[in-house]
Structure formats: structure tokens, C-alpha cells
């Protein structure tokens, strides 16, 4: 499959950019999204058109030349300007995420390359329903997909099952809740694990196969695309749930943040 980049016109193999060289960008804005997640808006010096679901590699360099590199999914939709949004969760003993939370400031320069990844990609011409399942910061690439769907005024039925510890930990909660009100083809279900949820359509437990089956039932037809993102443990549970709900392994794409 060949995809033509939306604005840059570069030719790519299935989502994989021909080459992605390092560029320096500036932090334009930082927003505290949840107690442990902040959004970083980065102004690209060499703008690119990504596909929702893709990530960038970020590299930090210490004065002695030591380099640390990590991948971060792009949260913004491709139709946005030359500013991309990353949403980074602070891991207490981590090397890179605490740097972003505790040290990085507006105006700082950060090196990154992208867009990267050619598998976990929003199907631009989707007509059959899409099921998105994420936990914590795993909703980031799914958010890019939801924003892209809205930016293109797509009507493909889409459901998001999002697991968080508490209501306050739900990343992009306001945007997701108002989108659900405005768009009858978009369904949101929260799985809140450490407190009772506020809405009757949400769940008060960890994601399991019965929950995935119920989300599938809230869609008009069986989903033709399932995207699951989060920690490996979470992804295994959610992907197994999707299999038990009768979905074919071939339609389930996963992005695991390692751990």
C-alpha cells in the first residue's frame, strides 16, 4: 500500500516515512493534563505531515555527550499546524519523563525525529466501526486518531474504552466528554479502577473481556479495526478480551509502551 503524505506530498511505504532526520524544536507550551501527565506542544523547525497513531523519537544530550532516547506518540491530529502535542506521563524513577516534568520549560530546545511507525495507523478510509482501547498515557495515539476523525468530519462509528485509576487521571477527559455529546457516532466508556465512576455508562473495574464484549455491542456492527495501547500487561488483557469477544487477531493492532 502506498500512502501520500497529506500536505508534504512525500511518498511513503505503508506509513513509514522515507527518512526522518533529527530536527530541533522549541517547547511552545506546557499544560498539566492530569496529576501525572503533562502535554508538551513542540514547534517543529521542519514541519511534517504524520498519520494519526505515529510517534516521534526524542533525544536528550547531557554535557558529557551521553544521549537518552525515548519514543512518544503524537497526540495532535495531522491536520494541525507545525506544532505537535506530546503527552508524557511522569514515571517516578524514570530518566526522561521526570526530566520533562521537572526541568523542561517553555522556550527550551528539544531534538526529535519523525514521524515514525508504520503499523499502528488510523485507517483514513474506514467505514466499518473502529474500537479503541487504552490505559493511562496509552490513550495518546488514540487521541490523535479521534482528533483526525473529527478534523476530517468522518462518521465511522468509533468507540473508545479508556482505563484510568481515578476520574482525575483520565487524559483529555473534557475533550472526550464534549465530543461524545456532540457526535452520536462516537462512544466513550471509562473504566475507573480506584473509585466509583461518575456516569452510569462507565465501569468501576479493570478492563476484562466482558467489558470489551459490551463495548463491541455498543457499536452498530463488529469493528473492522481494533487499536490497543498501554503497558504490556494491559495490552495483553485487552487484546485477549477482544479475541474472546469474537474479533479476529488480524484486525487487532497493539502498541506497547514497553514495561
Amino acid at each position: 500500500m502506498v500512502i501520500r503524505g497529506a500536505s508534504s506530498g512525500t511518498l511513503m511505504t505503508e506509513g513509514g516515512a522515507r527518512s526522518a532526520s533529527w530536527q530541533t524544536c522549541a517547547i511552545a507550551e506546557i499544560i498539566q493534563r492530569t496529576p501525572s501527565i503533562k502535554s508538551y506542544f513542540l514547534r517543529l523547525s521542519e514541519p511534517f505531515a504524520h498519520i494519526a497513531g505515529q510517534h516521534v523519537d526524542v533525544r536528550l544530550t547531557a554535557p558529557d555527550g551521553y544521549v537518552a532516547m525515548r519514543s512518544y506518540s503524537i497526540a495532535s491530529s495531522p491536520s494541525a499546524s507545525n506544532v505537535i502535542e506530546l503527552a508524557i506521563e511522569r514515571l517516578p524513577d524514570g530518566e526522561v519523563s521526570p526530566f520533562f516534568h521537572d526541568i523542561a520549560a517553555v522556550g527550551d530546545k528539544i531534538e526529535l525525529r519523525g514521524p515514525l511507525g508504520g503499523h499502528f495507523l488510523w485507517p483514513e478510509r474506514a467505514t466499518a466501526p473502529v474500537l479503541l482501547i487504552g490505559a493511562g498515557s496509552g490513550v495518546v495515539p488514540l487521541m490523535a486518531m479521534i482528533r483526525q476523525r473529527r478534523a476530517l468530519a468522518q462518521t465511522v462509528p468509533t468507540a473508545l474504552l479508556l482505563s484510568s485509576r481515578t476520574q482525575r487521571d483520565v487524559l483529555f477527559a473534557d475533550e472526550l466528554l464534549s465530543l461524545e455529546l456532540a457526535d452520536p457516532k462516537f462512544t466513550l466508556a471509562l473504566a475507573i479502577t480506584r473509585e466509583p465512576p461518575e456516569r452510569a455508562c462507565d465501569f468501576a473495574r479493570r478492563i476484562d473481556s466482558a467489558m470489551v464484549a459490551e463495548l463491541v455491542a455498543r457499536l452498530p456492527r463488529m469493528p473492522a479495526h481494533v487499536f490497543v495501547c498501554g503497558s504490556n500487561r494491559f495490552v495483553n488483557i485487552a487484546a485477549d478480551g477482544a479475541l474472546m469477544a469474537g474479533l479476529d487477531a488480524a484486525v487487532i493492532k497493539t502498541e506497547r509502551y514497553g514495561g
Partner: peptide, 13 residues
């Protein structure tokens, strides 16, 4: 490019 304020955990390991 040196990143302002970054020292790194494994630096000099």
C-alpha cells in the same frame, strides 16, 4: 545539541 538541564542516569557508566 546539549539539552539544557539534562544530566542522564547512566552517564559515564
Amino acid at each position: 545539541m546539549i539539552t539544557r538541564g539534562f544530566t542522564g542516569r547512566n552517564s559515564g557508566g
